[in-house]
């Protein structure tokens, strides 16, 4: 569904993407995980036509983004990192304008708005001005808007950034539901839990390069199931263990403070890049 070959992008002297190769299958929920400035947003912006690529090739559902930009845009839905709703318009008006931009007729727009407001549980807010909505509701509305024209691929750029934990989990449930309904999802995040919970496969992105691609489970198993963070005079060190028993046994005679926890994607990212995601 998504094929990226040798994608490069520079901004002046800064190389944002240093040659990315990637393939995402139809129906997959694929996550791009990396620290700020790794190139996640640049990738999504190029894939959705907001930014011009430097070099390389991108093909979405068999259509090249350079030669068939309008066809590609019709297939894609985008939820950008920042809220970009029309705050002075109502919820329904925002969805309606989007439907018109994508050439939907009046009957289809009406039906789809009704379906989507129910889907994101916002039927009671249909006539509210967007500026009156909370951050979580705005995020849900942005997902609804991106789904308005029934895209085959949904791009989510840091979809839960700035939201509290409870609302984040609600958004995750919604994203899972969208994927289960057959939409291919390409997600960028710097939240470890988000990538672990949502994605089928994860790509680690660092300084414009893909460091590794695998399932979250495979990344974690490479490190071991349990991690122990030891705090001593030299700072914090982390050790990895296959089982909890082995980890606990290693603490015998340990004088320094320690924390025993499950291994996560952050550990895998740290092992591969030498730096933390956040």
């Amino acid at each position: 569904m998504i094929r990226i070959e040798a994608l490069q992008k520079t901004y002046g002297a800064t190389q944002a993407l240093a040659g990315i190769d990637l393939s995402v299958e139809a129906g997959e929920l694929f996550a791009f995980l990396g620290p700020n400035g790794a190139g996640k947003t640049t990738t999504i912006r190029i894939l959705t036509g907001l930014t011009r690529k430097g070099s390389g090739r991108v093909v979405l559902a068999g259509h090249d983004i350079e030669t068939e930009p309008l066809v590609v845009k019709r297939l894609c839905g985008l939820v950008p990192q920042h809220i970009n709703l029309d705050s002075e318009l109502t919820v329904t008006e925002n969805l309606d304008i989007h439907g018109r931009l994508f050439g939907m007729d009046a009957t289809r727009r009406r039906t789809r708005i009704f379906e989507l407001l129910s889907y994101v549980e916002m039927e009671d807010r249909k006539n509210s001005l967007v500026k009156q909505l909370s951050g979580g509701l705005k995020r849900r509305l942005m997902i609804a808007r991106a789904l308005m024209h029934e895209p085959r691929i949904l791009f989510l750029d840091e979809p839960t950034v700035g939201l509290d934990a409870a609302i984040r989990r609600r958004i995750w449930a919604l994203i899972k539901r969208v994927q289960q309904d057959g939409t291919t999802i390409f997600l960028t995040t710097h939240y470890i839990e988000e990538a672990e919970f949502l994605s089928g496969r994860v790509a680690f992105l660092d300084q414009g390069r893909i460091v590794a691609v695998d399932t979250p489970r495979a990344f974690i198993e490479q490190q071991g199931q349990w991690a122990m963070d030891l705090i001593n005079g030299e700072g914090m060190q982390t050790r990895y263990f296959a089982t909890r028993d082995k980890a606990t046994a290693s603490t015998a005679g340990q004088e320094a403070g320690y924390t025993l926890r499950r291994v996560n994607l952050e550990d895998a990212f740290l092992a591969l890049t030498g730096k933390k995601v956040r």
Partner: peptide, 14 residues
């Protein structure tokens, strides 16, 4: 300020 222009850029319009 509102980044709404992106909504037009991402839409299949000329």
């Amino acid at each position: 300020y509102w980044n709404i222009f992106e909504e037009f850029q991402a839409a299949p319009i000329s």
